[in-house]
Structure formats: structure tokens, C-alpha cells
């Protein structure tokens, strides 16, 4: 039976092929059979985790607590210099220039991306807004969030900062950023499950030295990363604690 690998469904579509290239590289380096399964939703991915069908995962920080504390996963690495940040944006024509001026009943466009949604909702708190007094509209992609902001169907959009930055200049010129988070310590991590854990040190070693040869560098580039950095157990525990404080 091959080991099962999956990637948080919020990966950038531009990097889909990169994850398959990475999986091929990993199989060659470890000599292990690893199957990459991409899930289309967080819900279907979590069900696979619950069934024990995931051994390796590039995980959203929102799921880290469940993976570590309920499923016995351990951290391997994170992408160097990459952290999850959120943006609150409105239509450029909106009269609102400050989050604090948003009113109850505001229509908020989000995706299913759980950590970005949480950070975004925290940034709406200065206006006393939360899920109970806003109208949350869920879209499949950040492009659709932007489109609905432009069409005036929603008042506010919550974006992954990276996804917002990747929007075309024309779209961005018609939007206005109210807040960009600067949290720095919330990030996706590659994590290994109990069935695969005896290979943890070997895989961690391969990954942190991946940027030191041309082949590895090329694979990293296809993922949009420069290098991997080791994640210590305590660093992961700290991020989980931090996420716990934000979920309250």
C-alpha cells in the first residue's frame, strides 16, 4: 500500500502540477511509494484524515491542532519566508475607508479557506462585526470574491493576501484594501502521520537540503517556494496555541 499524501485545498491553482512534481521527487528520494490525492474541499479532506487515509499533508494551520492533538501528526517543514496573511478589501467606489465604519448587516465574501476566514473576521471585530451580525457569502475562489465585490453583490471581501496580490492590475485598481494583516507566525506546514513517522528524520533531512541542488531547486520553484525550513515540535505547539486564542 502506498503512503497517502495530500495538500490543503487552498493551494494556488498555478502550483497544482508543482505538487505532482514534488511527489515524484519525494518518491525518488525516499524509495517509498507515495500517492498524491488532491481533495476539492476541506470537508472531504478532513473526512479522509478521519478515516486514516492521509500519511503526509501540506496542512492549513487551521487543521494543525486536529492533526497533532487528535491524529498524532508531527511537523516536518514549512516554506521559508511564506506566511498566511489576510486582506479586507472593498470596492474602490465604497465610501468606507476604515473597517471601524462598517455596519451590522454588511455582506462579507469569503472562501472556504479556514485560517484566512478566521483572520479576516478578527480584522472586522473593531467594527463590532462577527458571524452573528454579518451576511457571510462563500465563494469557491478569490477571483469570484473579487468579481462579486466589483459587481456590488457584496460589501467586503476577505482574501488570502497572496491571492489578492495575484489578481490582475485592472481588478486591483477597482478595489480598495482596508486592512492587510501582519501576523507573520501563521503558516502552512508539511506534516507526517503516525504510519509514516519512522521516516520523519530522513524526510526532514531531505527537505531542508532540497534547495542545495539544481534539481531540488527546480522542484521548489514549481511550488513557488525558495526552500523548506525545519519546524520544531514546540514551534508547531505554539502556532496551535496561537490559533486557539484566535478561535475564541
Amino acid at each position: 500500500m502506498p503512503y497517502q499524501f495530500t495538500v490543503s485545498p487552498d493551494f494556488s491553482p498555478d502550483h497544482l502540477s508543482g505538487w505532482y512534481i514534488f511527489n515524484t521527487w519525494l518518491q525518488k528520494q525516499t524509495g517509498q511509494s507515495i500517492h498524491l490525492e488532491m481533495y476539492s474541499s476541506f470537508q472531504s479532506q478532513r473526512e479522509a484524515i478521519k478515516r486514516g487515509n492521509v500519511d503526509l499533508i501540506y496542512a492549513n494551520p487551521f487543521d494543525a491542532a486536529m492533526l497533532v492533538r487528535e491524529k498524532g501528526f508531527l511537523p516536518l517543514v514549512k516554506a521559508v519566508g511564506v506566511s498566511d496573511e489576510a486582506i479586507i478589501a472593498v470596492n474602490a467606489d465604497s465610501l468606507v475607508d476604515d473597517v471601524a465604519n462598517l455596519m451590522p448587516g454588511t455582506k462579507v465574501a469569503v472562501t472556504e479557506d479556514p485560517d484566512v476566514r478566521m483572520m479576516g473576521m478578527i480584522m472586522l471585530e473593531p467594527a463590532d462585526l462577527d458571524a452573528s451580525n454579518t451576511d457571510i457569502v462563500v465563494y469557491d475562489t478569490y477571483v469570484l470574491v473579487a468579481k462579486n465585490l466589483l459587481q456590488g453583490n457584496v460589501d467586503v471581501g476577505i482574501f488570502l493576501a497572496e491571492a489578492y496580490d495575484d489578481l490582475s492590475h485592472i481588478i486591483k485598481s477597482k478595489l480598495k484594501v482596508l486592512v492587510r494583516s501582519q501576523i507573520s507566525v501563521i503558516n502552512h506546514s508539511l506534516m507526517i502521520g503516525p504510519k509514516f513517522a519512522d521516516k520523519r528524520d530522513e524526510i526532514q533531512g531531505l527537505l531542508v537540503s532540497m534547495d542545495q541542488d539544481d534539481k531540488g531547486k527546480g522542484v521548489l520553484k514549481s511550488l513557488g517556494f525558495e526552500a523548506w525550513a525545519k519546524v520544531e515540535d514546540e514551534e508547531m505547539e505554539f502556532m496551535i496555541d496561537l490559533m486557539d486564542t484566535l478561535a475564541i
Binding site: A100, E125, P126, A127, D128, D241, L242, T245, L246
Partner: peptide, 11 residues
Amino acid sequence: TSVRRKPSRAK
């Protein structure tokens, strides 16, 4: 661990 965030002015 203590995490502080921006409060609402009303609060």
C-alpha cells in the same frame, strides 16, 4: 500565551 488584537471602540 497572551494574544492581543484591536478592540472595538464601543467595547
